[in-house]
């Protein structure tokens, strides 16, 4: 069984994405990056991100990640804030610690691309 399936697949992401998006929107460290007039589109992006973090089916490549974040001047604090909000979301949903650890491993793997290092 894949991590994505263990976490509950698409249904689990749908349950988690509202909680996660509320957290980043109210997180002063990063909220400016998530403010958008098109909240539905922004919400869809968060869903794509979570699908990736859950090890689910998606076609995001390291190059996409670099391209999407390159003009945002992001630093470690921004990256950590997003990761913390994600972990807090999973804790809130009662996800087992070993699965959370696997999610963190996947997200950490994207760090250099996101920060364009």
């Amino acid at each position: 069984m894949s991590l994505y399936e263990k976490l509950g697949g698409d249904a689990a992401i749908n349950a988690a994405v509202d909680i996660f998006y509320r957290k980043v929107l109210t997180d002063d460290r990063i909220s400016e990056f998530f403010e958008s007039t098109d909240m539905e589109a922004q919400h869809a992006k968060q869903k794509a991100f979570m699908t990736m973090a859950f090890g689910g089916p998606n076609s995001y490549t390291g190059k996409d990640m670099r391209e999407a974040h390159k003009h945002m001047n992001l630093n470690d604090e921004h990256f950590n804030a997003v990761a913390e909000d994600l972990v807090a979301t999973l804790n809130e949903l009662g996800v087992a610690q070993e699965l959370i650890d696997e999610v963190v491993t996947i997200v950490s793997g994207a760090k250099d691309d996101v920060l364009n290092k």
Binding site: Y21, R22, L25, M39
Partner: peptide, 20 residues
């Protein structure tokens, strides 16, 4: 007006309404 729907959407979402 778009300024109204945007601001209100965010407010309702943060108050707990699902995005969908």
């Amino acid at each position: 007006a778009e300024s109204f729907t945007t601001k209100m959407r965010k407010q309702c979402f943060l108050a707990g309404a699902g995005m969908g």
